[in-house]
Amino acid sequence: MSKVIVITSGKGGVGKTTTSANVAAGLALKGKKVVAIDFDVGLRNLDLVMGCERRVVYDFVNVIKSEAKLQQALIKDKRLESLYVLPASQTRDKEALDPEGVGRVIEELKTMGFEYIICDSPAGIEKGAQMAMYFADEAIVVTNPEVSSVRDSDRVLGLLAAKTSRAEVGGPPIKTHLLLTRYAPLQVKKGEMLSVGDVLELLGIPLLGVIPESKAVLQSSNKGMPAILDETTDVAQAYLDVVYRFLGEEREHRFIEEEKRSFFGRLFG
């Protein structure tokens, strides 16, 4: 049974690609066969964050336009057996995506045995974002505890309920999850940042997880290695929790309270 999951937000720069990379890698760590598709045509980034940018030959649009076979475009991850990336085109624009083409590729991925198809949405609510969410069964709405992000996430929730394949045929609604990223417990405690509770009250969807603000995210994209692969960091632990919860396991929400750091902890960042 394949599941199509869209990672969306509306607002840019909140952590969609980071989340796509880490959730895809996390599911692969658990032995699932996963593909992550970059829907940001013209501004591809998933390949960089996954560290496979030099191996991109054919892309998503090539496959849609039958200029290449899916097997030729898929990039197998060097670290995880069952993880694949379908990169976006860097030279075309979002008009190249159409529902029939995207649908065909997703169906083909399903017949290839992919259990999870992660759609990394671009920011905004135009073609790329619409196509990324169109065939989704579930959605992870990535939100920062910040006014623009919350408002945009709310708008996206409206689109998920109305402008998708499931909505149009009147099927069961897309299952939505909130992922609160770049959370800083200290600022929340001081009343300078919206809390988890605040955002949940405003958006009203179930909480999948909280990812703390962390230097590890920049380090991991610098290296082209999803943070989840270095278990020692807070971000890795947070994303691992997210993956476990997504697969149905109960995990307590960590990283919501300020952590008491030892002297050495503060010394070595």
């Binding site: 006014v147 300078e192 919206l194 809390s195 605040d198 009250e201 405003l202």
Partner: peptide
């Protein structure tokens, strides 16, 4: 944060 919440 409280102002933000009210506005939102």
């Amino acid at each position: 944060a409280s102002v933000a919440k009210d506005r939102l």
